[in-house]
Simulated scan of single mutants.
Amino acid sequence: MTFKKSEAAPAGLPGDQGEVGPVFRVKDVIRPLASNIRGGSVLIGFASDEGVRRNFGRVGASQGPSAIRRALERLPVHHPVEIVEAGDIACTDGDLSGAQERLADAVATLLDRDMRPVILGGGHEVAYGSFLGLAKHLSGRLATTNILVVNLDAHFDLRLAPVPNSGTPFRQIAEFCSAHGTAFNYLCLGISELSNTTALFERARQLGVEYRLDEEMRPTDSAELRARLAQKLMAADTVYLSIDLDVLPASVAPGVSAPAASGVALEIIEDLVDDVISSGKLALSDIAELNPVLDRDDQTARVAARLAYRLLLGRGRKSIIR
Rank of each mutant, 00 (worst) to 15 (best):
L75N: 05
S251F: 01
G133A: 13
S35E: 12
F176W: 15
E267C: 00
V126H: 05
C188Y: 01
N146K: 12
D93S: 12
L152Q: 09
L33K: 04
A99D: 10
R25G: 01
G94N: 08
H180V: 10
A90N: 05
L103G: 02
R315Q: 11
Q63F: 07
A11V: 15
V26D: 07
L290G: 01
S166H: 02
E289R: 03
D286C: 13
V42S: 03
G87R: 05
R159E: 00
S48D: 04
V256N: 04
A305L: 15
K281V: 08
Q100D: 04
A230D: 09
L313H: 05
A230Q: 09
P164F: 02
A154N: 08
E73L: 11
L266M: 13
R31I: 13
G140S: 15
A34G: 08
K281Q: 07
S192P: 05
I321Q: 11
Y211H: 07
D28M: 06
P80N: 01
E19Y: 13
G21V: 06
A288S: 14
S195C: 07
V149A: 13
Q231M: 06
G57D: 03
L245T: 11
L266S: 10
D295R: 04
E50Q: 14
L72C: 08
L229V: 06
E82P: 03
F170N: 02
S195M: 11
G87L: 09
G263L: 02
H180N: 15
V276Q: 09
P80Y: 03
T168F: 01
P14L: 08
I44P: 00
G51A: 02
R53L: 12
A143L: 06
V264P: 03
I287P: 15
A250N: 10
S35D: 09
I83R: 02
I147H: 01
S178G: 14
N291C: 04
D237H: 03
F156A: 05
